[in-house]
Design a protein around this nucleic acid. Sequence first.
RNA 1: UGGGGUAUAGCCAAGUUGGUAAGGCAGCGGGUUUUGAUCCCGUUAUUCGUUGGUUCGAGUCCAGCUACCCCAGCCA
Length: 558
Amino acid sequence: MAETENRPTNFIRQIIEKDLAAGLHQQVKTRFPPEPNGYLHIGHAKSICLNFGIAQDYQGACNLRFDDTNPEKEDISFVNSISHDVRWLGFEWEGEPCYSSNYFDQLHAYANELIDKGLAYVDFSSHEEVRALRGTLTEPGRNSAYRDTDVATNRREFAKMTAGEYAEGQCSLRAKIDMASPFMCMRDPIIYRVKFAHHHQTGDKWCVYPMYDFTHCISDALEGITHSLCTLEFQDNRRLYDWVIDNITIDCTPRQYEFSRLNLEYTVLSKRRLIQLVDEQHVSGWDDPRMPTIAGLRRRGYTAGSIREFCKRIGVTKMDNMVEMGMLESCIRDDLNVNAPRAMAVLEPVKVIIENMAASESQTIDAPLHPNDETMGTRSITFSREVYIEAEDFREEANKKFKRLVLGKEVRLRNAYVIKAERVDKDSDGNIKTIYCTYDVDTLGKDPADGRKVKGVIHWVDAATAVPAQFRLYDRLFTVPNPAAQDDFVEAINPESLTVKHGYVEAGLRGATPESGAWQFERTGYFCCDPDSQAEQLVFNQTVGLRDTWAKIEHAPG
RNA sequence: UGGGGUAUAGCCAAGUUGGUAAGGCAGCGGGUUUUGAUCCCGUUAUUCGUUGGUUCGAGUCCAGCUACCCCAGCCA
């Protein structure tokens, strides 16, 4: 609903439309290929929306493929969370999820094909020797002493490697390409290494694992991927991608296209840094509401639709970018503004006693669930002699710009009556304990009969039926726009990224759960119930605040 | 002269047979409003990294320059 309807256009979709028009493919096929070594984040959402979105819009298909060639870093828990998050985002992959590890047998056979063609060799050089011979960005590399080993020997040595006869690091299988290539990845890249590691999918079957560059292109070809979309840092790797496909016997020629990865201000989007935040417990976990992970955003209250809309708005190009948080916030506000029912909550309560109302009296008021959408219906709220209002909504004195409750002045209680502040009670420290007011009985649902204007409206909760609740307010996780550029990004963590408040919500929210959806707490922001919430102690996360023009006015110079 | 990429408003981004700068976010001004919200209206690049060239005409074509990003894991 809040999602814009027009289909996105970008250079990749243009290539696809051209290919389709030229009859190059009868059906477009893409894939989303995460390594299961962490949780998905908003940057992955960009890739997911691109790949699955293309499949949807061009009647094609998109595979979910776990690129699991490095068992040491991977875990089955990540394949589960990734599958869950992709579905939650609203996408469905073609058939069963795929795994690069499904192709280990075929990959191994292709490695042997390369050996047979004299295009791969087993190298017994040490890590240090390999590095030293690789050369530098400006100097060519030099050939390894093992580069000209004969085919039969290479066959035999690779078999021994595969059989576990060599230790990790003792040898590797390398493609024989060009040690003088200006593309570093073409200087006889290692395509298989020895790793005595248990694999979450293949168990202990293998002690050699193929490298990314060798695996990815072949996996794409085996799955019939037509357009293999990845991020910019793989542009050089495309030469190797094509080299492998060109030098093995395979009847599919997928094409790789690169787009720029997403950068979001005031957060980090690299797997390495997110893992560090979790491991060092700077956050409560992968789903901490301050995290840019899908799980974190979900717990924070972001909807799948708002994330899809965000991906649509940021577009897909090859330009390096740094997207403002405001862009993301605008997407969730647009969604929740139309979809979230309204309610009232007081986050920092101060008691108001309405002196001209009987203590025994309690009224029930029907309040709209949405001011601009009456089809959403109404809710019942109660009003009685004692109510809570927001501490910041009262001042003993204030100028005309302060459209709230001021001593001796009137204000409208949202959905209820006009009240007037008569006097206050303070504690020994001078803090306001209670505000004594009177109310105008003839102002429910109408303006004062004598025509006087009351411009301020504040929210409130009936003390008699209020439900206590904890509110968690979040701020940006980092204090600088680009924490990844810091020497140590951990030092840029915002110590005030979480603020906890204790107040009240209206009675109707008793029993709220994380499945209840979102509310707009009027004049405050959008909230959802956190999984930590319990019947005796409701916990609400602020997804995002309302646009706050008052803050600008109040803090404006002069 | 290692190579690969990218340069359009504060941010994101259209612009693709060269014809006289879309849209979104943010901002600003105004209107409606029992949310300082929403909504509505208006406004925001004489200019497309820069310097030259071709052309009646260039963001789009050509040449030079500059800036930024990526590549020297047996990571992906």
